[in-house]
Nucleic acid binder design. Structure first.
Length: 351
DNA sequence: CACGCGTGGAT
DNA sequence: TATCCAAGCGT
């Protein structure tokens, strides 16, 4: 495909662009800081990579700052109750990440003397660390010559080569092409540079090819069909599910219930409600009361279905079953709920 | 390997 | 309003 000298030139052009135009993400250790002796903290890098999985930088960054303040070291995180971690994670989504984060912190803290393993193969054994995160930690923190491939890199590589195979089937091919280009001398900087190029220049809708250091060698640019890549297999439409939510007021408090540990929103607190099904379940509140229903349902879109919840509101005199999953909290303490339930309480105007 | 798994911003 | 999709992982 490319000669060695072409590959060298591409690497140099990318790193040169990154040095001048690359974003300074808060967890990034800049070259001048490295020269001054600074070295990336694997705990901080791991935390950032897990938090940014399928998450936008602006949404995730405040959580990263908050966690580093609450839990400055991996031992601090391991020592915290899982419930606290889930509470602070609320709103970030994909809650299995938080459960795996806490589990991983315990393993690092107890079985690895508080140190992260330095190779991709060892990192891959840890919960919540997959191919991308293992490669990234190994490359950034330990200068391992690993090729970093996230969604940004997939897009850049697919355009550079006009990869004809649709995603996700094309992943192995894209990995190979990316690895052939990756810089083994500065794997961390190279990987972050390529991700940043994808995030800021080689964007999904309207790429800024006139600013791109790689446009001369980009096959899609040469053909003028950049936005056709990466080709994707069409996704199936999201079904609709229906349900009821019961906003139970006890004086100035609200009854919440803990969800089961597995599955959707696992382990998180919820506004109690029915199952969510394609046919609307029967109205069946946990306790007898004078229930009133809000006119419009709350609509919430998950990754794989759309939910429409009828909201019912009542002052309740009797307590729900004391099975340990129920708790009454003040309205001030409802911000640590998944966004769906914050939306429900907001609609019911009780926050 | 296809699917389950959140949320919010951009267009 | 509808659609896309973001520094993916586990099963």
């Amino acid at each position: 495909m490319w000669t060695d000298s072409q590959i060298q030139a591409l690497r140099a052009a990318l790193l040169h662009w990154y040095d001048r135009e690359g974003r300074i993400l808060p967890w990034r250790v800049r070259p001048e800081d490295r020269a001054a002796g600074a070295t990336p903290d694997p705990y901080a890098i791991w935390l950032s990579e897990v938090m940014m999985q399928q998450t936008t930088i602006p949404h995730g960054t405040p959580y990263w700052h908050k966690f580093l303040t609450l839990y400055p070291t991996v031992e601090d995180l391991a020592a915290a109750p899982l419930d606290d971690v889930l509470t602070h994670w609320a709103g970030l989504g994909y809650y299995a990440r938080a459960r795996n984060l806490h589990k991983c912190a315990a393993i690092i803290s107890e079985a690895h003397q508080g140190r992260f393993p330095e190779t991709k193969a060892e990192l891959l054994r840890l919960p919540g660390i997959g191919d991308y995160t293992a490669s990234t930690i190994a490359a950034i923190c330990f200068d391992q010559p690993e090729s970093i491939v996230d969604g940004n890199v997939e897009r850049v590589i697919a355009r550079m080569h006009r990869v004809a195979t649709p995603l996700p089937k094309a992943k192995p091919e894209i990995r190979r092409l990316a690895a052939a280009l990756a810089d083994p001398d500065r794997p961390g900087d190279y990987g972050q540079a390529l991700m940043d190029l994808g995030a800021t220049i080689c964007t999904p809708r309207a790429p800024s090819c006139d600013l791109c250091p790689w446009s001369d060698e980009c096959a899609a640019y040469a053909h003028g069909d950049m936005t056709a890549y990466p080709i994707k297999t069409p996704k199936k439409e999201t079904p609709v599910r229906l349900g009821h939510a019961y906003v139970m007021l006890k004086d100035n408090q609200i009854w919440l219930r803990r969800r089961s540990e597995a599955g959707l929103l696992g382990g998180m607190m919820e506004v109690p409600g029915s199952d969510w099904q394609s046919e609307r379940p029967d109205f069946s509140p946990p306790v007898e009361a004078e229930w009133s229903r809000l006119t419009a349902p709350v609509r919430h879109v998950f990754t794989h279905f759309e939910l429409r919840l009828d909201i019912h509101l009542a002052q309740v005199m009797t307590d729900p079953p004391g099975d340990g999953r129920w708790v009454a909290v003040s309205a001030l303490h409802t911000q640590a709920l998944p966004s769906l339930f914050r939306k429900v309480l907001d609609r019911a105007n009780v926050t």
